[in-house]
Write a protein that binds this DNA or RNA. Structure first.
Lengths: 113, 113
DNA sequence: GGTGTATTATACCGATCAGTTAATTAACCG
DNA sequence: CGGTTAATTAACTGATCGGTATAATACACC
């Protein structure tokens, strides 16, 4: 795959079907057919989603007779989380601000303070 | 925005230009023109990227005379990280496996162990 | 070899996307 | 007012996306 790992990871995650597939795989390996069952979608569509997930390195595939079971591979997720942590201070800041705001409101609730 | 917050967040992050804009905004507020400078791209293109980021709630915009400065808003990033943490045990598992593998290799390196 | 099951490939469609150019709005400045 | 700067809108284009239907492949079992 191309060097742009993050784009591949994020765009794989940007689809609810693919996220649901990942959630299912978190419970254990599964074949394409089993993965497709919860969805009102044809098998080729699921097959394409799996290809996207595989392309992003989020799943790996093996072979067992005519089945090609999928398993989750979370390493790219760690990369993505690590990337996002660089912004951590910003959401922590905004929590602090919210905190300050709440305290401010509270002090105004008690006018005899 | 629609309830599907996560899709919006991930697909906003799935573009290197938008990630670069976020990184720039981590240094402080900036106008559209300033944000556009590092890129070989027209202003309307940047404007569209900003609209995507704003749609995902990752930036907020204010007004100062003819400028519309952007500021980072990291709350959706926290949501996304929280979502991904559900898979944490999988990447930790694979680290443990890697660890075990390395130890195995090491023990084979020292035959008189 | 023929049949059934699991999966992928191909070809197609409509929608959305990422970018462009050109025109427009909005605000400042003299 | 006219001119300049900042930013958006509108209209267009080519590419990618998410899905379909249908055909092809791969394997197991008899």
């Amino acid at each position: 795959m191309q060097p742009d790992h993050l784009s591949a990871t994020f765009s794989a995650l940007a689809d609810p079907t693919r996220r649901a597939i990942l959630a299912r795989l978190a419970l254990g390996e599964a074949s394409v057919k089993v993965l497709a069952e919860p969805f009102e979608m044809t098998l080729p569509a699921i097959s394409k989603h799996l290809k996207v997930l595989e392309g992003a390195g989020l799943i790996t595939r093996s072979r067992e007779a005519q089945w090609r079971p999928c398993a989750i591979h979370a390493a790219p997720l760690k990369e993505a989380v690590d990337y996002m942590q660089q912004f951590r201070k910003f959401w922590e800041e905004s929590f602090l601000q919210l905190d300050a705001l709440l305290q401010d409101l509270q002090s105004k609730d008690k006018p005899n303070d």
